[in-house]
C-alpha cells in the first residue's frame, strides 16, 4: 500500500538485525579463538561470516522489494539520505584515527626518539645513534631494512584510475537522471571495472612490497601506518566496488527512476568518499 505523503511510514518488524548480530558474534568469537590459537577458530569465523552474508542479502532484498513496491515516501527517502551521510562521516572519523597516528608518528614520536624537543637524554641513553628520518622502522630496525613504494609508479596510475572512476560514475548518474539506460549501465560497469583494476594493482603492490622490498606490517611505524591505512582503504574500495556491482545489476533489471534512486546515490557518495581518502593517502603516505 502506497502511503500518502502526509502520513508516516513505519516498517514492520524484522529478524534481519538479530541475524546480523548473531553473524557478527560468530565472526568475533571465531576470530578471537583463532588469534588465541584454537584450531576451530577459522570454522567458527566462516560460519559467522556466512550468517552475516545471509543477513546482508536478505535485509537488502527486503528493502529493495519494499522500495520497488513503492512503499517509501519522500520522508523515508530523506531519512535514508541523512543516515548515509552520517554513516560516511563516521567512516571519515575512523580513517582520521589512522591519519592521526601517521601525523603523530612523523611529527612527534619519531623526532622525539631522535632527541628533538626536550628529549636529548631519551636519545642519548635509550636510543643512542638513532637519527629521526622518514620512512623509518624505528631505532631497533624492526623487520629489517626495507624499501618503500614510490609515488610516481603504480600509485600515481591508481590515482588516475580512481579519479576517472569518479567521472564515469558521475556520467552514469546524469544518464540515470535523463533516463538514458544504455549509457547508465555502460558507465556504471566502467566504474566498477576501474575499481577492480585498482584493487588488482594494489594486490600486486602488496606482493611486491612483501616479496621484494621487505616492506611488511612488521617494518616498524612506517609499515604499520602504511599497511593499515592502505589496507583499510582497500577494504573500503572492495566494499564500494561490490556495491557498484549490485546497483549495476539492479539497473539491468530496470530498477531506479530518474527522480527516485537513493541506493544509487548512496553508493556514489560512498565511492567518492573512498576516492577522497585515496587522495589523502597518495599525498601523505606515498608522496610526502
Amino acid at each position: 500500500m502506497a502511503h500518502a505523503d502526509n502520513s508516516y511510514y513505519i516498517p514492520h518488524g524484522s529478524h534481519w538485525p538479530l541475524t546480523g548480530s548473531i553473524g557478527l558474534f560468530g565472526i568475533m568469537i571465531g576470530a578471537s579463538i583463532w588469534l588465541n590459537g584454537s584450531g576451530i577458530g577459522p570454522l567458527v569465523l566462516s560460519i559467522g561470516f556466512a550468517v552475516l552474508l545471509f543477513m546482508i542479502f536478505g535485509w537488502f532484498r527486503l528493502v529493495i522489494n519494499e522500495s520497488e513496491g513503492g512503499q517509501y515516501n519522500s520522508e523515508v527517502d530523506t531519512s535514508f539520505r541523512m543516515g548515509m551521510g552520517w554513516f560516511i562521516f563516521s567512516e571519515v572519523m575512523f580513517f582520521a584515527a589512522f591519519f592521526g597516528a601517521l601525523f603523530y608518528a612523523r611529527g612527534i614520536a619519531v623526532p622525539w626518539l631522535g632527541g628533538d624537543s626536550n628529549n636529548f637524554f631519551t636519545n642519548e641513553l635509550l636510543w643512542n645513534n638513532f637519527t629521526a628520518t622518514w620512512p623509518t622502522n624505528g631505532p631497533d630496525d624492526l623487520g629489517g631494512k626495507f624499501e618503500t613504494l614510490g609515488p610516481w609508479g603504480i600509485p600515481a596510475l591508481n590515482t588516475a584510475i580512481l579519479l576517472t572512476s569518479g567521472i564515469t560514475l558521475t556520467i552514469a548518474h546524469h544518464a540515470l537522471q535523463k533516463g538514458s539506460r544504455g549509457i547508465l549501465s555502460m558507465f556504471l560497469a566502467a566504474t566498477f571495472i576501474l575499481g577492480f583494476i585498482f584493487m588488482g594493482f594494489q594486490a600486486y603492490e602488496y606482493i611486491h612490497a612483501y616479496q621484494e622490498l621487505n616492506l611488511t606490517m612488521e617494518s616498524g611505524i612506517y609499515g604499520s601506518t602504511f599497511f593499515l591505512l592502505t589496507g583499510f582503504h582497500g577494504l573500503h574500495v572492495t566494499i564500494g566496488a561490490t556495491m557498484l556491482v549490485v546497483i549495476w545489476l539492479r539497473c539491468l533489471r530496470g530498477h531506479f527512476k530518474p527522480d527516485h534512486h537513493f541506493a544509487f546515490e548512496a553508493v556514489a557518495w560512498y565511492w567518492h568518499f573512498v576516492d577522497v581518502v585515496w587522495l589523502f593517502l597518495f599525498i601523505f603516505v606515498y608522496w610526502l
Binding site: A105, P139, E218
Partner: peptide, 19 residues
C-alpha cells in the same frame, strides 16, 4: 607485529593515550 605503540619500531605508547 605492527609498532604503533612500540618505541623500538618508531611508535609511541603515548600515541594511544592521545587517540
Amino acid at each position: 607485529g605492527t609498532s604503533f605503540f612500540n618505541a623500538a619500531g618508531g611508535g609511541d605508547p603515548v600515541l594511544f593515550q592521545h587517540v
